[in-house]
């Protein structure tokens, strides 16, 4: 099993004819992802990796019945692409681009909520479900393997580091999901943990967090509901105090956002917090053997 993305999904690639879109379509197909089409305005009728390309999502929907879309278009066009997917009934959207204006992300994420669409990202490496041989994202294929650990991360490469160390320790993963590094993204730790709670095959969850914001603090309060062991690694232990955004930031955070605040919140709700990324695998092993 897996969360959010399974082999039953039918994936289209928006921006399939660009360099990134093309390269990662090949990688996704290589991993086993059911990619059924691509969208690239004015490139309809062509093919990429034997996958049909359409001019619009609307056309792709009637031709290949997709359920999910991964967006590779340049940031200035990302809002348009996301809305095109949502308004045409796509229910899972993975937004890869970085540097999407935050106001655009606000509009995307709030519209997605109204339509009950799941948005992952923006500025994410995506989502991968090893048991299902299915991924929507740009992560390297070989560092994952099927198993009982769910991983949710804010940061890309750091999650690779941790997923790979789990794999090398023979601790496979149900699903690894990157929420994205931008200030406004579709998922929160809580929405993802709720998915992991409902997946019987996920027996332990790894949270990869970092300083700033208060996502980890908010999530901590959810942990007692989760009913599964949680191992957390938080990056930024040695980082100097972050940039403050005027008084407004200070008023909102009011002491949240620091590593201490996050660590205390998570620990007090039963999570095991490790200090270095290479300590995650051992902590997971212990949690699973309990």
């Amino acid at each position: 099993m897996a969360i959010l993305l399974t082999h039953q999904d039918r994936v289209i690639v928006q921006g399939i004819t660009g360099n990134q879109g093309r390269f990662h379509t090949r990688q996704m197909l290589g991993y086993g992802t059911p990619v059924v089409g691509g969208v690239s305005p004015a490139k309809g009728g062509t093919e990429v990796e034997d996958i049909p390309v359409f001019d619009t999502v609307k056309e792709a929907v009637s031709a290949v019945q997709p359920t999910a879309s991964i967006v590779f278009v340049p940031a200035p066009f990302a809002k348009d692409a996301a809305f095109e997917a949502m308004e045409n009934g796509i229910r899972l959207i993975v937004m890869i681009p970085e540097h999407i204006p935050v106001q655009d992300s606000i509009d995307i994420v709030n519209r997605a909520r109204a339509l009950d669409v799941t948005v992952i990202g923006p500025n994410t490496f995506g989502i991968i479900s090893p048991q299902e041989h299915t991924k929507m994202g740009i992560m390297p294929n070989h560092i994952y393997k099927p198993g009982p650990v769910g991983v949710v991360a804010r940061s890309g490469t750091l999650s690779y580091e941790i997923a790979y160390s789990l794999t090398q320790s023979d601790l496979g993963q149900t699903t690894v999901i990157g929420m994205g590094g931008d200030p406004v993204v579709g998922q929160t730790f809580i929405t993802v943990l709720e998915q992991f709670r409902r997946d019987p095959e996920t027996r332990c969850v790894v949270m990869v967090g970092e300083i700033g914001g208060s996502a980890e603090e908010e999530a901590a309060e959810y942990l007692s509901t989760l009913g599964k062991p949680v191992v957390a690694y938080l990056a930024g232990r040695a980082a100097p105090p972050g940039k403050r955004m005027g008084h407004a930031g200070a008023i909102i955070e009011r002491g949240k956002g620091t590593l201490d605040s996050k660590e205390q919140a998570l620990k007090s709700h039963g999570a095991q917090v490790v200090t270095m990324p290479w300590q995650v695998a051992q902590a997971v092993r212990e949690a699973l053997s309990r």
């Binding site: 940061s155 490469t157 750091l158 999650s159 690694y233 990056a235 930024g236 270095m276 990324p277």
Partner: peptide
Amino acid sequence: GAGMAMATIDA
């Protein structure tokens, strides 16, 4: 990656 850079500083 920002997370990786922070983790490196931590290490």
